[in-house]
Design a binder for these strands. Sequence first.
DNA 1: GCATTATTCACCCCTAGAGGTGAATATGTT
DNA 2: AACATATTCACCTCTAGGGGTGAATAATGC
Lengths: 101, 101
Amino acid sequence: MLDVTLQALADPTRRAIVARLAAGESRVTELAAPFAISLNSVSKHVRMLERAKLVSRRVAGREHFISLTPGPMDEAIGWMTQQKALWAWRLGRLEEVLDHG
Amino acid sequence: MLDVTLQALADPTRRAIVARLAAGESRVTELAAPFAISLNSVSKHVRMLERAKLVSRRVAGREHFISLTPGPMDEAIGWMTQQKALWAWRLGRLEEVLDHG
DNA sequence: GCATTATTCACCCCTAGAGGTGAATATGTT
DNA sequence: AACATATTCACCTCTAGGGGTGAATAATGC
């Protein structure tokens, strides 16, 4: 799923949505408000975040409440951290990564 | 540059290249060897990793030695970690992220 | 000089994605 | 019932990306 996660986060609009959701769940319309793009486009962005399981949806009447599910980010963080660790280990300075990497 | 970094890492072939480079620098041909795709395609993948500054190139004669530059991953790791932290903080369980996130 | 090796350049094809608009669906309000 | 709101569906356009092939460029080896 790393593909889907990283691709989902590669788009600035979607990262802004994620950042917004870190502050709490919100409706699609609220998510769309800050952007100059159409509500429809935001809806599609949300769908891609859903596909990446970075958000989940709670439907209450006609409103869809989107909330963050940061779990998949762990895998991405883990992969990058591991690559960095291997690289640093080969260079003989593993401490650099373990200390503040 | 988060866009470029995450997009570069979103492709499995490029992640495999990065993983290979964590073990040490290597030539484009060596990088291409494990893949079923053409050398040309691998060359393009390397170019995208270069654009993301995840790798750098040292030209020695006709050989191009590619090596990992994991710096940009810090920014990506930092962004995700921060989002997770904000989210967890709002939920009142910051320790979850600080301990093993 | 000539052939071989390493890599890129210049194209082509095809799909995915980001944007749009207008209609459909579903719920809420009066 | 009639209207308004929230969201998605269905389509269109355009560009970027991943794949390919064949030629060009550059360096090595003979």
